[in-house]
Design a protein around this nucleic acid. Sequence first.
DNA 1: CTGAAAGCGCTTACAG
DNA 2: CTGAAAGCGCTTACAG
Lengths: 331, 331
Amino acid sequence: MITSRDVARLAGVSQPTVSRALRDDPKVSEATKQRVREAALALGYAPNAIGRALSVGRSTRVGLVVTDLENQFYAHVIAPMHHELERLGYELVLITESSESAPVAEHVTAHGLCGVVLATTTVESVVPVRLQDRGVPFVYFNRTSQSVQADAVTVDPENGVRELLEDAIGKGHRRIGAIFGPRNTSTGEQRENAVHAVLDEHGLALAHRDVRHGPFDFRTGHEGLRALLDRADPPTLVLCGNDVVALGALNAAAELGLAVPDDVSIAGFDDLPTSSWALIRLSTVAYDLDEMSREAARLIVARVERPDAPPAHPVYPTRYVARATIAAPRP
Amino acid sequence: MITSRDVARLAGVSQPTVSRALRDDPKVSEATKQRVREAALALGYAPNAIGRALSVGRSTRVGLVVTDLENQFYAHVIAPMHHELERLGYELVLITESSESAPVAEHVTAHGLCGVVLATTTVESVVPVRLQDRGVPFVYFNRTSQSVQADAVTVDPENGVRELLEDAIGKGHRRIGAIFGPRNTSTGEQRENAVHAVLDEHGLALAHRDVRHGPFDFRTGHEGLRALLDRADPPTLVLCGNDVVALGALNAAAELGLAVPDDVSIAGFDDLPTSSWALIRLSTVAYDLDEMSREAARLIVARVERPDAPPAHPVYPTRYVARATIAAPRP
DNA sequence: CTGAAAGCGCTTACAG
DNA sequence: CTGAAAGCGCTTACAG
């Protein structure tokens, strides 16, 4: 391995001077900076991040905590977040929260991460408390938690849900069902509340037997739709907790030989790229997930660099994207 | 931060003894191991990976180099690879190879990765050479390169392609087109060669105008299908370089108002989960991508731990999965 | 079986 | 403006 010592020798300066010169420390003269840069280039030297991390007491690596790496939702979080972190000089490390793996907080301190983005926190999770105890900076992504104050980036479902439901109600839907996300996530709860609120304004309500809950995954939608429609008097519209759930529902409908939207209407939430495919055309609620993901990257970096700044909580607006899965119910 | 020094103080031993005890060094007595473990537990101590990395001269973090994090193919690589690496006590770090970012080899040494998995190497890439120059262990994933010898895990397309083509030819397809992957990847080339070989055996060939090439992404399939079918005398079957390309083709067909497989048959390669959706039912070539991804994790770890072992190159077999996108062409 | 010493590659007061 | 010294949290010969 080639180190700053090697560069120092070649440039004829001391090792600390190499360190300063390469970080463009104003106290170093231009002339020696020049010499050091040339030596570094000649040797193909780049400062070692591990030495630096140990020395300054923190790394430039942030963890992203997720539960389900196969879930396509996360691909669209990871890509922009990774890109933004890289731009800011940080690295992205994936952490999955599973029963087998070490508890998140321990993992983070043991691996020397400087901060973490929590993308799958449940309402009752102890992770935020543990992180706080250990003094690890973190931000909530697409989640919040009452227990611990922290930066958060979330979505306000209200507008999108309202526009969607008003379209659906206008088309004649009265009997509405739902396959919501997990009750123990702020996201799931918030979307559910938005639905109840808007329906209530229109004098409508979800019948208890028309509602299902489950993790935000394909299977939840797949099984949920079968459960809701395998009855004499099914709902005419099924709202889904997110697009991945809706994709499961859409495919279940196809398996049941049901035409969407002629036999049943289906709605999603997230507007993932897949949802706009010609073969899918899912009517859904959209927001700027790319920008949210980048914003989370910026927030965690800001938090790491200035731990005492007041917490920020940007909230992203939503809008309805009408495509081909909501139509008037059969008379 | 709580360190081995703190644990030492509490346990009444020296700091190095803590280090040894926690790594279960046989030279430490059971009694003091016990005492040290208790102290560590009481303080919530876990050895700091950064200190360790600096001390032993290498980290336990392996990089996965990809070009396109949004591509769903990679989600199905990242998840099992991450899981297996974690099981082996290693971390997964994502590296995207883009013009903006620092060259891969520099990134790797600067960030102190112990090894890397190359999942998107082109045939002419200089990355393998650079890594070799710097003495960084790496393994090719779903790729190989002539330039530098290294561990590799790849797929043998031959059997799957043969089974698929024999089915298609048996159904009556003679005029066959293709949207292959990039010519400058071993994977693209190998699959293309397999197609030519099998067709040749059957006295068939691809007409030059029925062939397109492009990156392994949705757009390649989407645009490729339009280009191939927007003619008086189009092919009756379009082979795609992989499933993501085929998904693009399938959707393009839908947009053109073409029924698959009635108006045109389409085939993929990879058998991603999406391909088995009721709404997709893509006929494709399957292999064990999960196991391949785990195997790559095992190979890079083995290489890091025993740099002088002879290179391994497991090759995974393929098989045809007939679903609903290949049928007899219209008479 | 255990401790004192040295060192991994950096950064950062402290002198000069 | 630059260097010598100390230290970040570990591991690893080396003594004993």
